[in-house]
Structure formats: structure tokens, C-alpha cells
Nucleic acid binder design. Structure first.
Lengths: 110, 110
DNA sequence: AGGCATACTTCGTCAGGCGAAGTATCACAG
DNA sequence: CTGTGATACTTCGCCTGACGAAGTATGCCT
């Protein structure tokens, strides 16, 4: 739906955002983003998990394996304090950036 | 100022947008974007020119070399008809995308 | 038993932004 | 007339990161 390059800049923010409410596992995050965007946003599983591994490595989220009988094993991710800072910063960056783009394409829009 | 990943998704739109008004050369486009964004947006020359070459290859813009005495040689780029279509499409995509991001990070913002 | 949804992993590919270095011209200061 | 800095463009190699493809495994429904 949206170009990979466009999505590239905000996938971390999107994932971190949906983790603000509560812990979620990878598959759930993917489905939730798809649903919240009204089906407009889809990420490949490989993309999704690679982002999760990456930002866990940066200490922004922490995964916890949950084995429940009657279900497959799932890794639930929670925001770390560091992650809460990052999501705030990235949100601000996103807001400033989108305002800037709107301004530039608006100014020269005549 | 802004992360490379964030800029990645919109550099083409930004360049095409400033070319809507009139033909401009590479260096000028870089300076103009910096100025229009209030100094928030800076692209390396290598980035800028590689984008220009790429989108010229796609037929979105057309370069014309101008040799003027008392000035270095400059390549002025103009939007092609194809480029006008693309800028409209990319603009729509950007608007839909940013609305979507705002919605997702807003919904889960509680 | 077969098919589908769930759930995660690994690997290789490719696009594209960036840093660094280089070429060249002109203006202006000393 | 030499140095410095702005203008203007080119080329090369690196590295990040999204993606496609394939694989593993479990549970549910028919």
C-alpha cells in the first residue's frame, strides 16, 4: 500500500506506540497495526521481527517468552523506561518532520 | 536534524515539489530545501545528486545544462509531464500516510 | 488427513542515504 | 597573486534496513 521508503521512517515509532498501552507479541503487533490503519499498513513478518530484535538490542523493549498450553509459544514485548523516552522523542521528531514536509510542499504548491 | 530513515520516504516528493514552480539546479534545490524548512532539513550533495540522477532516469525530471559566462556550469531540472503526475500521486500518498501514522500513534496514545 | 490461522526464525538481496574525496570556477581579502 | 570560501557537480564504497522466500511448529476445524 505505502512505499517501503515511506514506512521505513516510522515503523519503530509505530511499534513502540502500540506497546505503550500493554505488552504484545510480534504477530499481534502486526495484526494490530494492520487493523488500526484500516488495512492500509502491512509489514512482512521478516520486517516486523527484525525491527523487534533490533530495538530489543537497543534496550527499548524487553521480550518475555510465554508458554501457555493450548497455544504456541509467544514472545511478549514490553517498553523499557529507555523505550518510553525514545517513543516520546520519536513522536516529537515525527511531528516536527511532518509539519516541515507539509510546509515545504505547501509553500511550493502554488 | 532528522533521521535518514525519516527523510528517505519524502526526499523525492520534496525535490519534485520545489520544481513545480520553476526549473532549478541541484545546488539551488539543496539550499532552497534548507531555507524552506527553516534550516531543519539538510541533504548531503551526494544524496541530492543521486536522487536527481535517479528520478531523471525515471523520466520524472529533465536536466538541461546551462553555461553562462561569469558562472560555473549548472544543470537545470524541469518537471516532465510524467513528473507532474508523480508529484501529485506522491503528495496524496504522503497525506494518506501521515494521516495514518497520526491515527495509529494517536489511538494508542492514551 | 488436509488446510488454514497462528507464531516465530533465518538468510540473502537490493535500494538508497551518507561520508569522503575530488574537480572546477569565481569573488574577495590580504 | 595567493589563499580562502562559496558555488556547482561527480564518483565511489559503506552500511542500514525492508523485503521475499523458505522453513519450523502448533492448534483448530472440517
Amino acid at each position: 500500500m505505502f512505499s517501503a521508503d515511506l514506512k521505513r521512517g516510522s515503523i519503530e515509532l509505530l511499534i513502540l506506540s502500540v506497546l505503550k498501552g500493554r505488552a504484545r507479541h510480534g504477530y499481534d503487533i502486526g495484526k494490530l497495526l494492520e487493523q488500526l490503519s484500516g488495512g492500509q499498513l502491512e509489514f512482512r513478518v521478516s520486517t516486523l521481527y527484525s525491527v523487534l530484535y533490533r530495538i530489543e538490542g537497543r534496550g527499548w523493549i524487553k521480550g518475555r517468552w510465554v508458554e501457555k498450553k493450548g497455544a504456541r509459544r509467544r514472545c511478549y514485548y514490553t517498553l523499557t523506561p529507555k523505550g518510553r523516552e525514545v517513543v516520546t522523542l520519536q513522536r516529537r521528531e515525527w511531528e516536527a518532520f511532518s509539519a516541515m514536509v507539509n510546509q515545504v510542499i505547501g509553500v511550493s504548491h502554488a
